[in-house]
Nucleic acid binder design. Structure first.
Lengths: 241, 241
DNA sequence: ACCAATAGGTCTACAGTGTAGAAGCGTCAA
DNA sequence: TTGACGCTTCTACACTGTAGACCTATTGGT
């Protein structure tokens, strides 16, 4: 019964012609969202949607290219409005959006580090940040660097949260900290109770707040002649003179 | 000539007993530093030092455990002194150290996101940050959160630099930006020349500076009764009351 | 001196992975 | 009808991490 090997092994009813990139991408996105990168493989994906793995690679030239598209798609889910005159709230808006993105898709957020500048959604978001920095009154040089640095923080924080670096202290880690030299690591041990109830959202907000304050101070320092704050609408109009 | 198969295929002169974990780790570190994670495998490592791949796994229980040790070792190369009374320069010192680490070992810096709190070197460093935050005059709650957030930024920025996110704009990317809608992405396009000569070091320094200024402002806000800056030495003594 | 235990090193094998290259098949244009 | 082309599948290759059995040199106990 085991060896009636003649059977052509059922030629696997060829998938209907209409398999579209979009369908594959959707399934891939779903698989990635639930399984994470380690649990993701083109073979699993093929099995999930009932097509040959190589079909996937025919539409997306490589696994990496597919991951890039997945990152794209996740970025497209963030919806921040157009830039406003209020650069501070614009920065906060973008910050919230990125943190939300990390929480929504924790298993794939790290892709934004690997594939930077993935597509149009990216540009729409970064435009808001760039404009905010210019509107704050920073010279181009500083604006560009601080904007990218701001981005870096957003992605880094999101990654830290999703990778567990920002989680409240667990019992094992507490043990480890308590075992440290109480003199050399006095501050560490003093903060143990605080780590146990760490509010990462507050940490995030406070950091953004501090950063914004720092930028304000920098601008004020650079323009000592005008004690008053610069008028943001003027700065907006100043773009592309 | 091809088929004198009787030969016992030379039983591969068993490696001397003295293969130590430290030697394996050193080679692993080297391999990781030069090849990066993608080019790293226990089989390659085994081949490199002339031992069976499984010997590696006998000393380090898994590939991941080995990577953790590698991360440990790289962290151990940062050498910041003990905390001082000057919390601002302490923070800058740690920041410099981490950026230096990223530059020194760009192919393995990302491990610090995967394996947080890898060992004693880690604690020595974070103690400096925690103490700095407390010395700044922040309440424990804020100090803990802002310290971790600060860390997050350091690792995130290092990763961004090593992954190319902070590189000066290349010709292809410039093309992509120039193709954008000049009205919707006015700020982006205005900053193009600046991106081409981006000074990531300045961006880093400026961000740290802004962050520190923001923390100062926060502390000053919380203690409006004393217009003068708090005496740091008092704050240091205040630890562990 | 012997024997047994043990720890270090190796071998084999298994279940995966990404993907190149060829082959099969359906549809459309000439 | 013929040809071409494009989507799908098959097969195969070179890898990967690692479990489990095996082999052997050293060590400790008697």
């Amino acid at each position: 019964m085991a060896d009636l090997g003649e059977v052509p092994a059922k030629p696997k009813p060829r998938a209907p012609r209409g398999i579209d990139k979009a369908d594959i991408l959707s399934s891939a996105f779903e698989l990635m969202a639930t399984e994470g990168e380690n649990g993701f493989s083109v073979r699993k994906l093929g099995a999930k949607i009932g097509i040959d793995p190589m079909t996937v690679l025919h539409h997306f030239s490589s696994r990496d290219a597919l991951l890039r598209h997945i990152a794209d798609r996740s970025l497209a889910t963030i919806e921040i409005g157009p830039p406003t005159d209020d650069w501070k709230s614009d920065l906060k808006k973008v910050a919230r959006a990125y943190r939300g993105l990390a929480h929504r898709y924790p298993k794939m957020f790290h892709l934004h580090f690997r594939f930077h500048s993935t597509g149009p959604a990216d540009h729409a978001t970064s435009e808001v940040v760039f404009r905010a920095m210019l509107n704050a009154g920073l010279p181009d040089r500083d604006a560009a660097g601080l904007a990218l640095s701001f981005y870096t923080y957003l992605i880094g924080f999101g990654l830290a949260e999703t990778e567990g670096l920002m989680q409240p202290l667990g019992p094992d880690e507490e043990q480890e900290l308590r075992a440290l030299d109480p003199i050399a690591c006095a501050a560490t041990q003093r903060l143990i109770p605080t780590f146990k109830t760490l509010d990462s959202g507050a940490a995030f907000d406070n950091t953004i707040e501090a950063f914004i304050t720092g930028i304000e101070a920098r601008v004020a320092m650079a323009e000592p002649q005008t004690a008053q704050s610069t008028k943001p609408s003027a700065a907006v109009r100043q773009i592309r003179p």
